[in-house]
Lab assay of single mutants.
Amino acid sequence: MFYPNSPQTSPQLTQIPYGQQYAMMQRQIQQPYHPFATTEPQARLYPYHYQGPIQQEQGGFITQQSTAASPQYVQMRVTPVDQSIMSGYPNQTANGSSSSSFNYNIHPQQQQQQQQQQQQLRHHAMPVGSVPLQDDRYRKQLIVNYLAPDVTSTDLHELFSRFGELDGARIIYDKQTNMSKGYGFVYFCHAEDAKEAVERMSGYEFHGKWLKVGYSTNPLNIVPSNSSPYVHAGSRGAAG
């Protein structure tokens, strides 16, 4: 039997160049792979992502010199942007860049009308829970959420009447099932009393439920100042 490094198959040491006398086997001759043993700084910083320098080929596509990437890492192929796409944008300079302001050559009167329309939209648009300043009635009506099913309009009136005089209180019921929808409205005579009720009743436990109280901004629920107070009856038909 002959071994790869046996004296019968191995040459004389004098015939082997210096430095390879003890590297006779194939696994010894093959050098191990060192990912950080390279002179390129990109490979030292990113050993798993770097795959060699990027070269520009004919046709405008950018390719990489090395083989496919590892399945664990996804390499994105980048193509140059066609400058003709950006030619339609206004205020574009000769080098292809555009300024931040756009001039669509709008007539001054049209621009003024658009600004007025935007101001009107901001004036009428009102986020949930906010209180408008032009109508004091919005500051007097509250919406009470997360009410228990057994709470009546009379219970709601008695709960909030300790903060001040009320114009009314009612629970909203479903017309088909005649069941409470879980929320109601309270109408105060003074805005200061309503503000105190919002601050003190939010998070209050009532009939096993934690109440959420806020201003009601729905104009359909506003009680006119010259109208008669609501009837605080315990029956659902009268309260709904």
Rank of each mutant, 00 (worst) to 15 (best):
S227K: 03
Y48S: 07
H34S: 05
I16N: 06
V213G: 00
Q64F: 15
V144D: 01
Q117G: 07
P41L: 09
Q120Y: 13
H34N: 12
Q141G: 01
G19M: 11
E199C: 07
R77D: 05
E196Q: 07
R122M: 15
S84G: 13
A194G: 01
L13E: 04
P35V: 15
V223M: 05
L133P: 07
N103T: 13
I85L: 10
I172K: 00
Q21M: 12
I172N: 00
P127N: 07
R200N: 03
I16W: 15
L121A: 03
Q26D: 09
M179W: 10
S84A: 08
G60A: 09
G203A: 02
Q112N: 10
Q83W: 14
Y146E: 00
I85G: 09
Y138K: 01
H232R: 09
G214M: 02
Y183G: 01
R137V: 03
V213L: 03
H123S: 07
H123I: 11
V81K: 05
Q20A: 03
N103V: 10
S161G: 07
Y230D: 02
Y215N: 00
Q55E: 08
Q21R: 07
G240I: 14
Q176P: 09
K181T: 00
G19S: 08
Q51K: 12
V186A: 06
S228H: 14
Y146T: 00
G182Y: 01
S98I: 08
K209R: 05
H232W: 03
P53R: 04
L13S: 02
P219R: 00
G19T: 10
P7T: 11
G129Q: 07
A69P: 08
N95P: 08
M201F: 02
Y33M: 13
P11I: 14
S225Y: 07
Q141C: 00
R27S: 10
Q112H: 10
Q117M: 07
Y215F: 04
M126W: 11
N145A: 02
M86I: 14
Y138S: 11
Y230S: 07
M24K: 03
P132C: 08
F185N: 00
M25D: 10
P127K: 07
C189I: 13
N95K: 02
P11E: 07
A43R: 04
S216E: 00
P127G: 06
A238W: 14
H190E: 03
T152I: 07
T14R: 06
T79R: 07
E57T: 11
K140R: 10
S97L: 12
T154W: 09
P90L: 13
T217Q: 02
L166E: 01
S227H: 08
Q30F: 14
P7N: 13
F188W: 03
A23S: 07
Q15G: 12
T9G: 13
A148I: 01
D135R: 02
V81Q: 05
H34T: 08
Q114G: 12
H207S: 04
D193I: 01
Q12N: 04
S153F: 12
T14D: 05
Q110K: 06
I85R: 05
T154S: 09
Y50F: 10
F61R: 03
I172W: 00
I171W: 02
A194L: 01
Y230A: 04
S70N: 09
S153N: 07
V223D: 02
H232Y: 08
E158R: 12
P41I: 11
G237K: 11
A23C: 15
Q109T: 11
Q83A: 09
Q26N: 14
F160D: 02
L142N: 02
A239T: 14
F185C: 00
S101N: 09
N103I: 14
Y204M: 12
D136N: 06
T67H: 12
A148D: 02
R162T: 11
A125L: 11
I143R: 00
G88N: 03
G88K: 04
L147M: 07
Y3H: 07
A148M: 03
P32K: 03
R44T: 13
Y46E: 03
A37V: 15
P127E: 03
L147S: 01
A197N: 00
F2R: 05
L147Q: 01
Y173H: 04
M126Y: 12
Q92V: 12
Q75G: 06
H157S: 05
Q26W: 15
S98A: 13
M201P: 02
G240S: 10
V131S: 09
R170G: 00
E196L: 06
H207I: 00
G203C: 04
Q42H: 13
G184L: 00
I62S: 10
P224N: 08
R122A: 08
H190Y: 10
I62E: 01
L211D: 00
V213C: 06
P108I: 12
L142G: 02
I172C: 00
S66R: 08
L166Y: 05
Y104K: 03
G203R: 01
P71K: 03
N178F: 12
Q114F: 13
S153G: 11
A194R: 00
A233M: 13
P47R: 05
G208T: 04
K212R: 11
Q110M: 12
L45V: 14
D193Q: 09
T63D: 04
P41W: 07
E165A: 14
A69F: 15
G208P: 02
H123P: 09
Y89R: 07
Y104L: 09
S225I: 04
H124N: 10
I143A: 00
H49D: 08
Y215I: 01
A37W: 15
Y33A: 06
L220M: 12
Q116P: 11
N5G: 14
A94E: 05
P90R: 10
A233D: 02
T14P: 07
I29H: 05
V231E: 04
P41R: 09
P229G: 10
N145V: 00
T67W: 15
V186K: 00
I171L: 03
Y138L: 01
I171P: 09
I85P: 07
A197Y: 06
A238C: 13
Y48N: 04
N218V: 00
N145L: 01
G96Q: 10
P4Q: 08
P35F: 15
V198Q: 08
P108R: 07
Q141W: 00
N226Q: 05
S225C: 10
T14S: 06
H123Y: 15
T217C: 03
A37P: 14
Q109D: 04
D136V: 05
L211S: 00
G234A: 03
S10K: 04
D82K: 03
Q21E: 06
Y138F: 03
R236T: 03
Q30D: 07
Q28C: 10
F185L: 00
N5A: 09
N226R: 13
E165G: 08
G96F: 15
Q26G: 10
A233V: 12
Y73V: 04
V128S: 08
Q42E: 15
S161Y: 15
E192P: 08
K195N: 10
H34L: 11
T39L: 13
L166K: 01
G214Y: 05
M25F: 09
M86Y: 04
S227W: 14
Q134D: 06
Q15V: 14
L211M: 05
V213D: 00
Q114M: 05
S161D: 06
F163D: 02
Q26A: 05
G208Q: 06
Q111Y: 13
V131A: 11
L45G: 04
I54R: 03
Y146Q: 00
D135M: 14
V198R: 03
R27Y: 15
Q72R: 07
P11K: 08
A43I: 15
G234L: 05
V223T: 10
S97A: 07
Q120I: 14
N95I: 08
F102G: 08
G182R: 07
T79N: 05
S99C: 14
D155P: 11
Q75N: 05
R170V: 00
P80L: 09
Q141D: 00
V213M: 03
T152H: 03
P47W: 15
A191H: 02
F160V: 04
A194V: 00
A239K: 04
V128M: 15
K181D: 00
A238T: 11
Q58K: 04
W210Q: 03
Q119Y: 14
F185E: 00
Q141K: 01
